[in-house]
């Protein structure tokens, strides 16, 4: 039997890998992928809690509805974010965060 803590640890591990990727990588598109990974890791712990909190043999459906909303918002976020990245590439011919220094000084 797999315990709740194993799911929570896996979720924390995936989240920290995503966090590391956001800080290490310099390509905006890969940073965006790491953000999606972090969202998915959070979803994993939500679904694990939904299954763990089952009362009278029925899982907590509110948690799964929250996951559903998170997936929807992530889809909208990706659409807008990728449009911004394409606009940025048009203006600077680059997707590297090192080249975006207009607001630095």
């Amino acid at each position: 039997m797999v315990t709740l803590n194993e799911y929570l640890f896996l979720s924390a591990l995936l989240f920290s890998i995503g966090l590391t990727g956001v800080m290490v990588r310099s390509n905006v598109i890969v940073i965006f992928m790491c953000l999606e990974l972090m969202l998915s890791a959070a979803n994993l712990s939500l679904v694990a809690f939904s299954r763990f909190g089952a009362l009278n043999g029925v899982p907590v459906y509110s948690a799964q509805v929250l996951v559903f909303f998170i997936v929807t918002v992530a889809a909208a976020e990706v659409a807008v974010g990728l449009a911004i990245i394409v606009a940025m590439y048009r203006a600077r011919r680059s997707t590297d965060v090192g080249d975006m220094v207009t607001m630095k000084n």
Binding site: M1, L4, N5
Partner: peptide, 12 residues
């Protein structure tokens, strides 16, 4: 979180 060490409850 000691409660998390238990297995998942049975589902109907």
């Amino acid at each position: 979180f000691p409660e998390g060490g238990r297995g998942m409850p049975e589902l109907k």
